[in-house]
């Protein structure tokens, strides 16, 4: 499998601000690749240069073996794009939107019904976009991005502002799209989204990639302690100190949180003391990784 996208030392400045400051990565065919980071990290600017929407100050972008800049219509017909927030023609119905976007790619209008079905909006075909809910609008936007059956799909924060159910719903849809063999590149500021969907993520901060790899491997490589929490006041403070393998203890009056690198022994000891009330065990997440690399709490 070759690389569908190859980006080398990409840079873009807006005045004094280096929005993208030397970004290098490659995306393989069929991969689900995520660009993760807080707002202002440079995700969208990076994506816009990969899509060929902005001219990089320096660096190279190759997509499907072609240069993304200057605007290349032959390349554009092979990629699908969903912009941040949805870009729709005003006062058109869901079906008319898909037909219009389809026509831009020379796609026959009867494909629009199939696309509506794919994203589960068949019963909203005649509804104007202004009347769709946030989740429905995002799904329609996805249908518009997929109408010409592109090989690569770029999604800019597709689940931003959706309620949890609509997000899960969209995740399923995105997995299906990837499973059909399409390469997907997604930006998100949700850590859980990146963990749930992406084969690999690039974590960005201040215009640079600070970590890149499969989410599970990144977290494991962090070698962070497991955090075991139980209800506060269930355990004698004297006993707490004697628990096996505890690195640190925090008690905020509600929960007692114990950090450990040997959770087996600790959990066995807690069972012994009958202190499992309110038990929660949390392994390290991408958030811990972000904290470890930047020294800052992750705030989307």
């Amino acid at each position: 499998m070759g690389n569908i996208i190859q980006i080398t030392d990409l840079r873009k400045r807006y005045g004094e601000v280096a929005a993208v400051d030397g970004v290098t990565f490659a995306v393989a065919e069929g991969e689900f690749f995520g660009i993760l980071g807080p707002n202002g990290a440079g995700k969208t600017t990076t994506l816009e240069m990969v899509e060929g929407l902005r001219e990089p100050d320096s660096g190279e972008v190759w997509v499907l073996g072609q240069r993304a800049w200057p605007r290349n219509p032959r390349l554009l017909s092979r990629i699908g794009v969903q912009l941040q927030g949805s870009a729709f023609f005003e006062r058109l119905t869901a079906r008319e939107q898909i037909e219009t976007f389809g026509a831009l790619y020379g796609v026959d209008s009867h494909r629009s019904d199939l696309m509506l079905e794919t994203v589960g909006l068949t019963d909203k075909a005649g509804t104007r976009v202004e009347q769709l809910s946030g989740g429905q609008a995002q799904r329609l936007s996805l249908a518009c991005a997929l109408v010409h059956d592109p090989e690569v799909v770029f999604l800019d924060e597709p689940t931003s502002g959706l309620d949890p159910q609509a997000r899960r719903n969209l995740w399923d849809l995105l997995r299906d799209i990837n499973r059909q063999g399409r390469t997907v590149v997604l930006t998100t500021h949700y850590m859980d989204e990146a963990e749930a969907l992406c084969d690999r993520v690039a974590i960005m901060d201040n215009g640079r990639i600070i970590e890149m790899g499969p989410p599970v491997a990144l977290v494991r490589g962090l070698d962070a302690p497991v955090r075991v929490s139980i209800s506060s006041g269930r355990l004698d403070p004297a006993l707490t100190a004697a628990l096996p393998g505890v690195d640190s203890v925090e008690d905020d009056g509600v929960s007692l949180v114990l950090s450990t690198r040997t959770p087996d022994a600790l959990l066995a000891a807690l069972v012994e003391h009958g202190a499992l009330d309110g038990l929660q065990v949390r392994g390290a997440t991408l958030e811990d990784l972000f904290l470890a690399r930047t020294g800052r709490e992750y705030r989307a």
Binding site: L53, R74, L76, V81, L83, G85, A87, F101, L104, Y105
Partner: peptide
């Protein structure tokens, strides 16, 4: 404002 211009630029339309 609604990014349709941007979206049109990302489609192979003249």
């Amino acid at each position: 404002q609604k990014k349709i211009l941007r979206r049109l630029r990302l489609a192979p339309v003249r």
